[in-house]
Every structure is written in C-alpha cells, then in structure tokens.
Design a protein around this nucleic acid. Sequence first.
DNA 1: CATGAATGAGCTTTCATTCAT
DNA 2: TATGAATGAAAGCTCATTCAT
Lengths: 192, 192, 192, 192
Amino acid sequence: MAIREKSKEKRNALLKATLNLVNNNGFHDAPMSKIAKMANVSPATIYIYFENKQDLINQLYLELKISYTKQAFKDYSENMPVKKAFEFIWYNIADYKLKQVEEAWFLSQCDNTTMIDEVSVQEGLKHLQPLLDLWERGQKEGIIKDVSPYILYAYAINPLAFLMNMQKRGLYQINQESLEQAFQSAWDSIRI
Amino acid sequence: MAIREKSKEKRNALLKATLNLVNNNGFHDAPMSKIAKMANVSPATIYIYFENKQDLINQLYLELKISYTKQAFKDYSENMPVKKAFEFIWYNIADYKLKQVEEAWFLSQCDNTTMIDEVSVQEGLKHLQPLLDLWERGQKEGIIKDVSPYILYAYAINPLAFLMNMQKRGLYQINQESLEQAFQSAWDSIRI
Amino acid sequence: MAIREKSKEKRNALLKATLNLVNNNGFHDAPMSKIAKMANVSPATIYIYFENKQDLINQLYLELKISYTKQAFKDYSENMPVKKAFEFIWYNIADYKLKQVEEAWFLSQCDNTTMIDEVSVQEGLKHLQPLLDLWERGQKEGIIKDVSPYILYAYAINPLAFLMNMQKRGLYQINQESLEQAFQSAWDSIRI
Amino acid sequence: MAIREKSKEKRNALLKATLNLVNNNGFHDAPMSKIAKMANVSPATIYIYFENKQDLINQLYLELKISYTKQAFKDYSENMPVKKAFEFIWYNIADYKLKQVEEAWFLSQCDNTTMIDEVSVQEGLKHLQPLLDLWERGQKEGIIKDVSPYILYAYAINPLAFLMNMQKRGLYQINQESLEQAFQSAWDSIRI
DNA sequence: CATGAATGAGCTTTCATTCAT
DNA sequence: TATGAATGAAAGCTCATTCAT
C-alpha cells in the first residue's frame, strides 16, 4: 500500500503561484495553464488538489485570512488593559499588512471584488472575534465609542489596507514615524 | 445633431452595461458579447466607440471618478471655515457612496485591483486636489494633524468605502445616526 | 442593414462533416475541431449554428430521419390496395437504406445508442404514421396479422437495417434477386 | 488458488462496471476512472487485467457474445426435427434478449457501432454456426427458404433485438402472447 | 498484484476582435 | 455608422495511460 501521497509541497506551490499571478495580472489573466507552469506541475495536476479554479481561489483566500488573523492575535492576552490590547493587536496587523504585502494585497482584492463566494467571506470574518470582544469590553469600560463594530473596524483597522495599497502602488512610503501617526488616528477615531 | 445624440445614447448604454456586468459578475465574467447584448448593440459597434475592452473600462473609470469628485465638491466654497468645509465635503462623499452604490462599488473594485492602468488611476486622483488644499489650510491653522494627506485620506474618507461595501453585502445597514457617528470618527481621527 | 447572413451552405457542410466523422470514427472520436476542419470553418463557427455538440448531433439526426421518411412515402398514395401499398413503401425504404448507406448507417447508430436525447427519438418516430395507418387498414381488411405495430415494424422493416449493416461491413452483398427474397420474407412475416 | 479467485472477481467487477457505464452513459461517457471507481479498484489496476480501453471493451464483447450463444444452444440437440429445433433455439434467444436486457443491449450497441474491432465482430459471429447448420438442413429438407443465411438471420432472429430495444426504451412491453406472435412471424418469414 | 498521484494531449467551449456588407 | 457572421487563440477541464512505491 506504499504509494505516492498528495504532497503538501505541490499544494503550496500551486497556492503561491496563484497568489503571484492574481496579484500581478488580475484574476482574469491568471489562467490555470500559467499557474501550473509557475508551480512546475501539469495543468491536470491542479485538479487533484482543487476541485476547480473557484475552489483554488477560495482555499487560498481562507488560508491567507486565517494566517492573517493568527498574526493579528499573536501573543495577545485578554488580560491586557483595553488600550494596550488594542495597540498590541493594531501593530500586529500593521506588521502583517506592511511586511506580507503580497498576501495582504490579495486579501484586499478579494474583499473588494466578486471573486470569492459569499460563504468563504463569511467564514473568513469569524476569526476576528477576539477583536470584537475587546471592543465590547472597551465599551463597557467607557473607553471605546458606543458604535457598531463595523464602524470601529472601518476606522481603526481598514485604513491600513488603504495605506498598504498606496505603498504597493509606489505612491507613499510608510516609516516608523508615520506608523505611529496612523495608530494615533486609529485610536482617536474609536476612543471616547 | 440627431446623430450625435443617438451616438451619445449608445455610448452611455455601453458604459452602463459594463458597470452592471462587472459589478454583478466580476471583471472576469463580463465579456464584450454580453455587454453588447445588454446595451442592445452589436459587439462590433463597441469598437466604434472604444478602442478595446481596456479602453472601455478605463473610460468608464475616469467618467465615474469625475462624477464622484464633482459630487464631492458640489456647492463647496473655499471660504468656509475648515471644520465646516470638511463636514460639508464629507457628507457630499457619503451621499455619493451610499446612494450611488453601484458607481461607488465599481470605483472601489478598480482601486483595489489590476483592472485599471496605473495612468488612469493617477489621472483620477488629481481631481481630489481641493480636499488636499483644505487639509493644508487646516494644518496651517493648527486644526488638522500635521501628517501626510495619504494618512488623512485613509482615515477621513476611505472608511466610507468599507461601510458601503458592508452595506452592499447586506451585512450592515447605515442610517442617519450611524452616519453621524461615522463622521465623528472621521473628524476625530484627523483633528488635532 | 446589409450584413453577412448565416449561410445554409456552412450549416450543411457541418452536418455532412459530422455524419462522416461519426460514421467512420464513432461519436467518441469525432471532435469538434475535426468537424470544423472538415467543413472548412473555424471551431468557433460551429457555435453560431448549433448550441453545442449534442445539439449538432440531435439536429443531424432529426434532419436525416425526416429525409428518410420523406423517401419512404415518396409518391405513395393511400388509395393503393394494401399489399401493393406495402410493397411500394417497402421498396422505397430499401432504396434509401441501400443507396444512402451513410445516412442509414448513422440513423441506425443513433437508434441503438444513448447518443440521442429521448425527446429527439420520439420526435423522429412520429413521421412513420402513414405506415401504421396502412397496417391498420390491412388488419381491418383481414390481410395483415392482428399484432402490435412494433412487431410488424420489427419484422417487416427493421431487418433491412441488419442487411444494410452487413453490406456496409462487406460481409454480404445485396442484389436484385436477394432484395426480392427479402421482400417476400417481410411480407410473409406480417400477412395472415 | 485464493489469489486466482480474487483476481477473477476483480476482472469481473471491471467488466460489469464497463457494461453498466457504457449502457447508461454511452461509450463516450464511460471513462476509465469511472469504471475503476464503480469496480472499487484503482485506475491503474485496470491495466493489469486489460491492455487498454479497447481491449477491455473487446473482451467484454466477446465474453457476452459467447454467453449469448451458449444460452442460444442450451440443451439443443441436432437430432430435433427442423421446426422444433428452430423453435427451441428461437425461444432460447428470446429468453436471453428479454431477460438479460443489459447484456443484450450492450451487444446490440456494439453491433451497430464502430466501438468494436472488425476482428472481434467476426470472431463473435462464428459461434452461431449450429444455427446456420440447422438452416442448411432445413433447406435440404425443403422446409426453409433457399436464401442467404444473412437474410434468414435478419428476419428470424434480428427482430428480437428491435423489440428488446423498444422494451428497454419503455415504448413496448412484451408478454407471453406477443412472444408467440413474434415467433409466428419469425417462422413465417423463413419457412417455405 | 495493487495503488493514488501524476501527466501530456486533447476535449468542448468562450472570448476579444475583425470582416464584409 | 452599424451590423451579425466569422475567427484564431486560448480558456477551463478531462482522459487514457504511466509512474513510483
């Protein structure tokens, strides 16, 4: 019963190639044949690992979303005081978006497009729960504005995507100083 | 003159059809044949009005970007005091993004994708100059934080795109109250 | 409004090419690309005339079935006496099956396979009504056996398909004499 | 010995799966992967038992053809008088075609298609020799028409395939009475 | 003997664009 | 200007077969 087994390596190579091509050429110009070539496999091999192109994209999206949120809450403890906690998570996220630019850019494309199934989008959102919990705590303690978490996310977190976008386009360069400025704005927008 | 009119009608029908299809199916499933059918013309006719598909998309993008900024500065006067001015512009933009959802959603897709030429993107940004001027004035008057306009835009304006996105996805519903909350956050994030 | 119109010629060339290829190579080895090449058009052109491959086969089947039954009842009049009438139709059919071998062979393949939609098969059967009517008359006159038309068809007509099949395979050669023998058997099998 | 048994089981499972899939989906939609799955083996295993797909089909055809003729001449003795003998064989064949519908339907598909090598077809025909011998005897005795055995087969035997076909398609239902009618027609068509 | 992974070739179909009128 | 037919190129995907274990 000793046979070749589905290799994690190949799967990863395929996901990586997809990320690369979609980022550089767009979804509409990332054909399976190119993805295969870039991953050094036959086009037919893709279909051993993924049901079809949509499934490939969906799985990539979910995998990245999970790694993104994992990074967001890395070393985070719920015992931290609200502002410290927020600052901690915020810098984690900034770190991800500014260092893993390719991954962040792909996620941003997905979130602003029809590329991804609604189901997968919903699935991806679940993982942010700890941040929502933190905000609720902050609201109870009278530190955070008593507004919908969507507004809080829109002002505290989402602007980072815009800044990353500008940086990727070469229009703006973020440094330590501007990062601190950005955090200040984020905090000002949600604190009471 | 009648011919000119008719031509403009066709051009507009094509732009509208493109907007519709890209929004609903995504760029990758908006073929020229469908666009033509939706606009009630022959596929060949598209090439009388536009050089090719990319040109069609580009022109649509620029046209919408212009109408967006026109709306943003509608009835705006540079004589208004800084905060009033900002409030005025902000509500204009909110109005556009929340009422002309389709147009706004299309622009958001373009800004987060490889769909549009870098050139056209740059071109579109120019029209925001009055807002940048306002911020500069605010900074001189010591009212607005002394940070890059990219940061100001990221926090003051861009969050509206996120909220619109959520609303379009049916996850969140904006009303008068939450709009005011959003404005408050926007202002808090950029004021000193 | 003067434009190129769908040409009957091209449609016919496609149907003919399909007939040829399916007959010689089988349905499974008659790819659209070969059909296109044989008809001297681009593969994409097929889809202007037919919805898809199944539709192409279906339409070919129906067209041939109609021409087959047209030939069967050519110059036939319902006033002929039963035996004469049957003889007349029988020889018409024999003529078709033995002279238009390719068409007959294609029809036979379809009738013994899953190639064709049940709907199209049913549609094709309708056109044989005059023969069924004749048999009914013969039964009323006490000339034809009082059995199901399916049995009558099985013995009076269908054997011709088998003989044609053998002839096409080069195993048997029909001539005037054997044709008369075949008719005799056909008539013996259904007459009282 | 146990290994031999197990092997035979697998071979049979593969033949059965092929029969099933070709009958239900047609030759063009009976891929090796599906055959393997249905037979609960790996696609690669097929190639241990058969050279390739064509060989698999050929072997299935021959095996069925043999079991068909075996049934046709079951308990048959050459000493029977001609008519009795024919009746005996005819009902044997009818039994097979009407009870082992799947097998019969598959054979019928093969005989009316390009699926099978000419060689295998020829091979399959040999096994009918006893029937041809019987007819020759009948002709010598002045009981059977003095015509080619192809004509005799076409009228005496082949119609059963048509009736089976109609029954499989749900258009006609054979019972004891109609079976006797069919036999009568068969006999009438070949007897002097 | 038996396997699931792997594949190159090829399938049906679609697409952006051009042709001929 | 405007058209529907026409198309070469390429898309997503499947298939019979082989590989490596």
